[in-house]
Design a protein around this nucleic acid. Structure first.
Lengths: 109, 109
DNA sequence: TTCCCATACCTTGATTATCTACACAACCAT
DNA sequence: ATGGTTGTGTAGATAATCAAGGTATGGGAA
């Protein structure tokens, strides 16, 4: 029924890749950052976030390294690989194409 | 993996509601119309289309009536109900909100 | 008449993303 | 000690979409 829908399905990978493309970041911070930049519109649940990170890492698009967060704790910092940068470009293009197409229909050009 | 992705997940209901909001149409024509208006970018598979139509009908947003298509055959023409018009507005707003939010992140405003 | 293609409806099964709801742990402030 | 924040993770359910099939009618070509 109503899923209030915290995200647009299929865009999470793009959001993550874009976010850590700007600067390496740990999972918790990625979620916060996406939420903040989107003016609290996009809410990334942990049950979506961590599986997505593992998925992306397994596909070789991001890699993790343990380091100290700015609160002084250990956290897993993710950064883009070369393949990840390529994938980001692909996903950006795909998003542009598809969202523009939806807008064509919605706006009844 | 690569899903070439014919649709943005979660937008199909919106696309259908918008399409038959302009004029009542049968399923086959709805798919063709969406495809055409989107410049062939959005491809609505029948395995997505018909379940979606039944879902929307069951929720009272659209209603069906058998009539003759412009090729002279019997076809199920769908039109919006009052609730469907309200739902269309809701989904349009939701799409605007969410797609704008994604763009904020992607464009790194 | 036979055969193929377009139209038009549908279903079944699998895949996959996401969400809800947990559990664990360290740290900090009260 | 208690609770809130940070930070990681998993398990189970839900739901949308896709791939691949099936049925039927009608038209045109061979």
């Amino acid at each position: 029924m109503g899923k209030p829908s915290d995200l647009l399905q299929g865009t999470l990978d793009l959001l993550i890749l874009k976010t850590i493309g700007l600067e390496p970041m740990h999972g918790w911070a990625i979620a916060k950052r996406i939420q903040q930049i989107s003016n609290e519109v996009l809410q990334v649940q942990q049950g979506s976030l961590y599986p997505a990170l593992h998925r992306l890492e397994q596909q070789g698009w991001i890699k993790a390294k343990w380091a100290e967060s700015d609160t002084g704790r250990q956290a897993k910092f993710y950064s883009l690989t070369a393949a990840g940068r390529a994938q980001l470009t692909k996903e950006q293009e795909s998003w542009s194409r598809l969202s523009a197409a939806v807008n064509l229909v919605v706006e009844g050009a």
